[in-house]
Design a protein around this nucleic acid. Sequence first.
DNA 1: CTGAAAGCGCTTACAG
DNA 2: CTGAAAGCGCTTACAG
Lengths: 340, 340
Amino acid sequence: MASGISLKELAAELKLAPSTVSRALNDSYEISEQTKKKVLSMAEKLNYHPNPFARSLRENKSKAIAVIIPERINTFFAQVIDGIEEITQEHGYHLLVYCTHEDVEKEKKIVNLLLNGRADAIVMSVSSQTSDISHLHKLYERGFPILFFDRICSEIPTTKFITNDYQVTLEATRHLIQQGCKRPAFLMLSEDISITKERHRGFLAALKEAGISHNPEFSKVCCQNEETNIEILKNLLIQENRPDGILASVEKLALACYQAVKKTDLKIPTDLKIISFSNMGIAGLLNPSLTTISQPAFSMGEECARILIKKLTKTNQPALANEVVVIPSKITIRASTMVE
Amino acid sequence: MASGISLKELAAELKLAPSTVSRALNDSYEISEQTKKKVLSMAEKLNYHPNPFARSLRENKSKAIAVIIPERINTFFAQVIDGIEEITQEHGYHLLVYCTHEDVEKEKKIVNLLLNGRADAIVMSVSSQTSDISHLHKLYERGFPILFFDRICSEIPTTKFITNDYQVTLEATRHLIQQGCKRPAFLMLSEDISITKERHRGFLAALKEAGISHNPEFSKVCCQNEETNIEILKNLLIQENRPDGILASVEKLALACYQAVKKTDLKIPTDLKIISFSNMGIAGLLNPSLTTISQPAFSMGEECARILIKKLTKTNQPALANEVVVIPSKITIRASTMVE
DNA sequence: CTGAAAGCGCTTACAG
DNA sequence: CTGAAAGCGCTTACAG
């Protein structure tokens, strides 16, 4: 439907060669100011828009960046994308956004689709179940610029953005213990996600420090189905030796906890204290308000984008550095972890 | 970075003409089964991926659909996009997602950028402040397929998806009145959004029906700044003749109400009942849980996509019909509107 | 059933 | 400073 006028037609109208017009539009030093002005005004008048695909084909770049996330209905990811868009838009890049719904097969399909060059780079947070990473290796081997954030893939040597998960979880768990928790529980999403591992390490370190032995049954691997999660949690909470503090590594699980608690006689924070990783603006409006660890999502997106733009716009840039950039998260204490 | 092998190289490897290989890959009836098999297996072996831009240039279609929304951090829009992706992905379409942040100038820039054919169609929810719609007219005049959902632009004759705003607001307001509200207030986002108008009409109809006169001061036009909104609401709530029921046309404003109430001595639902348009899954976990009107976001996205796919994939399709498709919303009653 | 040729709309060496 | 020509990687009439 790109029904507009072409460069050739514009040139004919101006009685100039297409090459000259092209150079004038691209502000080449070879063209006189007078010609440039004439070309520009005529282009404006005739509503000329260069065909992006001809340009992409010729220059072998798409001017598009693919963003792959596990879910859209999640404030964190939405904020990251906002941050990416903020920076990339200034440089004329477009965002192709794909959602895996935590499904590795879908992730593979998307990644394979992008092998054809439709995007110049990929920014992604891997699907929670990702274990087979051959599709990511393929990208890397081809020299395709790829950058991870939050849910990173350690095996691929490229730039990764994460938060200070170990440290902040250590502090969060200390907070639970200070508030009187004797049997804190950690809820994680999936074992093969490195970021969750760090969070779990921080949790264990805090327990060790306080001389609390860890009940491995309290570290729950959860599934995608919300109902099932609530059921698992409810069963955990009604047993005699139930946890009295919960650290959720994902917002979804904290909310499932709230739901599960409703099905028991327990009260938050009296019987159970909860803290969760979450970027929801309304954590403070929950009942009771939720103590959160929020990640610097927007600036993380911006940083990803800046590095990418540098790589994509400057010539002879080396491959993306194999480094892990750590940005600190922030703990906001609210009612769900208050001592009565 | 589309560094892969080209059709020409693949053809050379097969000792066939590029045209034959192209036809074989596209499963043309002109090619023998044997040749097709040979070509397909070699393409697989050499990891051939057709260049999307060459194809787009040749066929004059992008295989991309642009989605323009006012904000990303909003469950409703996220769900709609999920729905659009669900359908379009099956047909090989990619989603370019743009966020206007409720800024008309940004919306104009994005729309003008899309005039070059980078996307085959646009699905959009207009920015709240949209009043000058020349940029949308331009699209329409060029025959560019454009489809509106939720925040529609009535002046452009194309297919629009909305919810039964008048009817559901009428019912929601009746509910407030039944629950004892004598001075219900309606909160709207902006006057020039047609969808908000319908909601306001439904509200007024319910008041009339109940013989309640409307205090226009209670129909608030709110701004983008959260702090300011909270301040406006607080001031509204501390006056003597304050509203005793609130119908928020946007989730954001209901949350601002919760915040504003915290700054007063009022209690929800005792002193003030609140109902809001919202697709948040966690409305039930707010304090108190929030009565909501939720829109069928996912299926709305799916429906948009189906119509678009039909238009884009079948030849000789007429322009998108100038019709308004209405999908019903659902009221979920929770604590925020309960009689004590 | 297969192939040679033209062309989609750009950009950029190469000439002058 | 401007222009003619080639080519990016496809597809599709047109031949045979």
